[in-house]
Design a protein around this nucleic acid. Structure first.
Lengths: 356, 356
DNA sequence: TTGTATGCGTTATCAA
DNA sequence: TTGATAACGCATACAA
């Protein structure tokens, strides 16, 4: 059903009014209670009446009114739990802004948001936090560590009736109801496409990844290489080194890399520690010759863009990640229907100094 | 007031429950009706009681419940009118998707959306459509033609109690309550920054603008030139030609331009007619030498990106333009408060083949 | 100047 | 297996 009236060239295409339970009840000659039982599948309805009601519902394309539901649901005080390993990572500030914005929009539906922020990626710590949250929450949004223990926990929660939405990072073999985050492979492909354009197809690259254990990091590298293989035979990748997302380590590793391969003129930072790479470029006196391509838009990265060391960075709509995840959770809690998509993929956005 | 509970390092920061009119009434020892009169400034309240109620409202940070308002308001059936000069312009398809999405979210609040799509930019036509809409709508979202007659009409509507939100294009000296759209100057700056990076600071450019009469087009050219002057002394702009957004005309003009200046290696399309520019590149046998930078992501532009003629395009979140405009309109209608910002600026997003 | 009653659409409880 | 009724928070018409 659609409330809108679209007028094209003066002809009205449609104009319909919403249907209520009361109307259906009247049409079927039953009470609102009975219709409610059918709509929400509570049982205890004579098969024939149920069939009749379903038919009318179908015909009139009944869709429950959210505002009405909201008011009625209010007493139950539903709870959305959120768990992020965001402590100390600037990227998540925007994610949290998005969460807050969505929370603002749904708060009148009596739905609380309960956010836990952790530091680091230890699976025991994450499990413990999940067990805390499951006591009070009706749905959990979190950024899973890629380990089977976590997947098992998700399935456990699911079976207990607590749906899980993964955010920022997905996990395989789990019953999470959907994923909200970026396409890391595309992110890697974008980096390579960009590097190809900036270097006019001829470059020597050092890749600094966080950890070869992390799925997202690997996906980016794979995406990068796929474009490399397809389009750029004159772009050479000399090395791929692990930095563990640490600035100091990145600085050391990048410096050594530059010394080993003096012809490197691009550093591709797959994840954190970007500032370390930039420092290595400065340390070795290569500001004008070596360019850095990376992800996210932290204050430090913006600084490095102003210095001309980082020439471009790729963002993945952090605000939207938080906003969408909460809105989808809300929809699921209030309507009870499964999300329309298995994955809600945000965009990989290229930023240069001029469109920061 | 905030419903959320944030736990950082195990410490709860806050946990509050929402306040209702009923609670305030009880606390003040008055009836709900009286509180309602104060909240909605309907008058007829003894100054002292009003003061007391306001004090409690302040203390408890009362914020009306949208779901409750929605249900009560429902009988009035508020109407949002939308007017776009979008017929035949692919860009607006996404804007309309955003409008539909927002409409979906607010339809249960009893608010209808009434959308009029026109072809072309004649001010008489636009005035007529506005006069149609004003008969039935409580708020109008539209894309104004930059003419004082339209500004006057906006003020007229405003004075009649019909607030106006401008979308995609803004207009000066008018009482529109806010603008939702892109920053054209930044869009131009982004194009130049990108061109600078791709050409490694050395290029010869032909600029194809739509019309020097259109404010947005000019802003882009100004933004482009500002970056040019600041950063790129080796980028030369040979010509700036008007194409009136027409494909055939763009093709003709661009072809002539290329013949006049055989050293041109970049065409910067400020607005429509991009395909014409690409055809000119093909016609003159310059596919490998001349690159096009443009705006928006239509099917034709994607084609030209695959061919390698368009190397990058800049999008301005068309979906968000539609979505945000309607959501802001909704907020304004339901809460009666002015929008928080004067301008809601969407991002200029750079797209290349890999992150389309 | 203030209070009361009713209804918006849905859910939940109780009685039939 | 059903129907009636009372909330939820707000707006409004009407009564006091």
């Amino acid at each position: 059903m659609c409330l809108s009236t679209i007028v094209r060239n003066g002809r009205k295409e449609d104009a319909i009014v919403a249907v209520t339970i009361k109307q259906i009840a009247d049409l079927c000659g039953v009470s609102r209670g009975t219709v409610d039982r059918v709509v929400n599948q509570r049982g205890n309805v004579k098969p024939e009446t149920e069939k009749a009601i379903l038919k009318i519902m179908e015909e009139l394309n009944y869709q429950p009114n959210l505002a009405g539901k909201a008011l009625a649901i209010r007493k139950k005080s539903l709870n959305i739990g959120i768990l992020l390993a965001s402590q100390g990572i600037a990227f998540f500030d925007e994610v949290i802004s998005g969460i807050k914005k969505a929370e603002e929009e749904i708060k009148d539906y009596g739905i609380q948001v309960n956010m836990k922020l952790q530091r680091g990626y230890r699976k025991e710590q994450q499990l413990k936090a999940l067990e805390e949250l499951e006591k009070t929450c009706n749905l959990i949004i979190f950024q899973p560590i890629n380990h089977s223990v976590i997947a098992d926990k998700i399935n456990d929660l699911h079976d207990k009736g607590i749906p899980v939405i993964t955010i920022n990072t997905d996990i395989e073999h789990s019953k999470r109801i959907c994923y909200v985050g970026s396409d890391y492979f595309e992110g890697g492909a974008t980096a390579c496409g960009l590097l190809g354009l900036l270097s006019q197809g001829k470059a020597t690259v050092g890749i600094l990844t966080g950890s070869v254990q992390v799925w997202g990091h690997n996906q980016r590298v794979l995406g990068f290489k796929s474009v490399l293989d397809k389009k750029y035979s004159d772009i050479v990748v000399h090395e791929l080194a692990e930095t563990n997302d640490d600035v100091a380590e990145t600085r050391r590793i990048a410096t050594a890399m530059i010394h080993r391969h003096p012809d490197i003129n691009y550093l591709y930072c797959v994840t954190g520690g970007v500032v370390g790479a930039c420092q290595a470029v400065e340390d070795t006196g290569n500001i004008d010759r070596i360019h850095v391509i990376c992800y996210d838009k932290t204050a430090e990265i913006v600084e490095m863009m102003k210095k001309g060391i980082v020439v471009a960075t790729i963002e993945q709509e952090p605000f939207q990640q938080g906003y969408q995840a909460v809105k989808i959770a809300f929809q699921h809690l209030v309507t009870g229907t499964a999300p329309q998509k298995d994955q809600y993929i945000v965009k990989n956005e290229i930023r240069i100094l001029e469109n920061l």
